[in-house]
Amino acid sequence: MSDTLPTRVHPAGWTSHTVFDTACPATSFNPHAGFDTADAGGGGRFHPFTDPAGIPVPTRYLGDHPIGAFAETLMRDDLGHRSVSLDTIARHGIATITFARDMLLADLVVDVVASPTLRGLLRSGREACPALRTLARTLHERHDRIDGLVWQGRQLEAAGMNGTVLFGDRVAVNVDLIETGVHALDRGLGLQLLRDAARARRFALPDALVLDGPRAGLMDDG
């Protein structure tokens, strides 16, 4: 590995949060195989990209904080709208993930003086995604020991609240990652976390999930 790549280690026992499609386990990776190219919501900051053999590299996005996990999935700036639908909420959950081994991560937490271009990309919207995907692909190709990337993007907007993306061809599902807590988003703690994140990210939630009980219908005109 080149000495010029800054890295950091998230040790075994490190916990992160992830928002995941409940059709698959929270520790699984999105294979990005056959993703819908007509769907701008299907691409993200560091995906899709392929390995040297042309195979899409699966990814799993994590946040140090639940809000960060939402910020990198359902509440991204690059979605173009600031809403989360009832269907999306019903199909997703939030989980706590614990690392079962040390994870070596390319450290993209940079300051603007040292890396103005990279810093600018990380703080930009969806127009920066193609360049960031190329950056991810380049680092993945050149540094075969790294398990992923860690960065502090504009979506997190809080010091010390970083995002992590893990590469699915480097991290073993259900071996390197342990699911230590799962919550549905449409009720209980998961719904509270969703509401917290929506407020922090200035997203709108469906009325049906905002008010309940005697408060229902407060925003109706009728």
């Binding site: 701008a40 899709p48 040297p52 271009t117 990279l118 995907r133 950056l135 692909r137 380049t138 680092l139």
Partner: peptide, 26 residues
């Protein structure tokens, strides 16, 4: 419009920094 996937960057030397890679990606 199709999504633009990440493309390979040819290596430009051992001393290439993250900032260099970011500039070339842009």
């Amino acid at each position: 419009m199709p999504i633009v996937a990440g493309r390979p960057l040819e290596p430009a030397g051992e001393s290439e920094t993250l900032e260099d890679i970011a500039r070339r990606a842009v």
